[in-house]
Simulated assay, not measured.
Amino acid sequence: MYSDIAHRKRALRAELRERRQNLTSSERDFATAGFTENLQSLVLDLSARSISCYLSARNEPDTRPFLNWATAEGIRILFPISREDGLLDWTVGDGDEEFTGISGVPEAVGTLLGPIAINDVDLIIVPAAAVDESGLRMGWGRGYFDKTLGSMEKCPPVYAMVFDSEYLDEVPREVHDQPVNGLITPTRIIAF
């Protein structure tokens, strides 16, 4: 059973990676504008003054225009920093500096705040490979966000960012997989 689910996840991730790589620059620009507008709307609707958000990698939904807006609005932003033990530390970041972390994705540079810093935010924005109609999030297989979300006693709303085609009827589920409260695509915000 476990190997069947793991195999289905690997196959689905490969398909989704290929779709993302095949997006045209105009499709990416359209998506970025939609993501930015919908993230701004969500933050304003929730009156969030402190959020956590990831720095997007090349083929991920682009978070940078939104992060620039949030910074200009005075919203405190915590960025994840991956650790060898599979957990996440957090930083508020220092300017525009970033590096490639052990997870292979961009990470902010700044003073490490430790894993519990996430407990003080009003909204958590996470990357995802796909989200299904029940709110189950499938990540990229490293488990950083599943471990973080699964360990929180009092979790604020968690929204995953996916392209419209990555909102699926169902994704393969393993015991450790954590659901999200909603998702953001370029064309909509869905709360579960």
Rank of each mutant, 00 (worst) to 15 (best):
K154G: 01
R137T: 11
I51N: 00
M1A: 15
R8Q: 15
R17F: 13
T36R: 08
L183G: 14
L12V: 12
S82N: 05
G141E: 09
W140P: 00
F35T: 01
I184C: 08
L123Y: 06
G74P: 13
Q178S: 11
A160E: 09
T111Q: 13
D146W: 03
G86W: 13
T148I: 05
G74C: 11
Q40S: 06
V92K: 01
V109G: 07
L12N: 11
D94S: 11
P115N: 02
L183C: 13
Y159S: 06
R76S: 12
A6Y: 11
G150H: 13
I81G: 03
V43W: 04
E73T: 00
P179L: 05
P127R: 10
S103F: 14
L87P: 00
S41L: 10
L67K: 04
E84Q: 14
P127A: 10
R58H: 12
V92H: 03
A14R: 14
M138C: 12
E166H: 08
D164N: 10
P172Y: 04
P157R: 06
V162A: 09
L136C: 12
R142Y: 01
K147E: 05
S26I: 09
P179W: 11
A129M: 11
V126G: 06
F79C: 07
S82E: 04
D120L: 03
G104A: 02
F30C: 05
E60Q: 02
G86V: 10
V43E: 02
F66H: 11
E27W: 11
A6T: 14
T91G: 04
R49L: 10
C53S: 09
L136E: 09
L23A: 00
D169G: 09
I118P: 08
S82G: 12
L123V: 05
V121P: 03
F30Y: 08
A191W: 12
T63Y: 06
T100H: 09
L46H: 13
I184G: 01
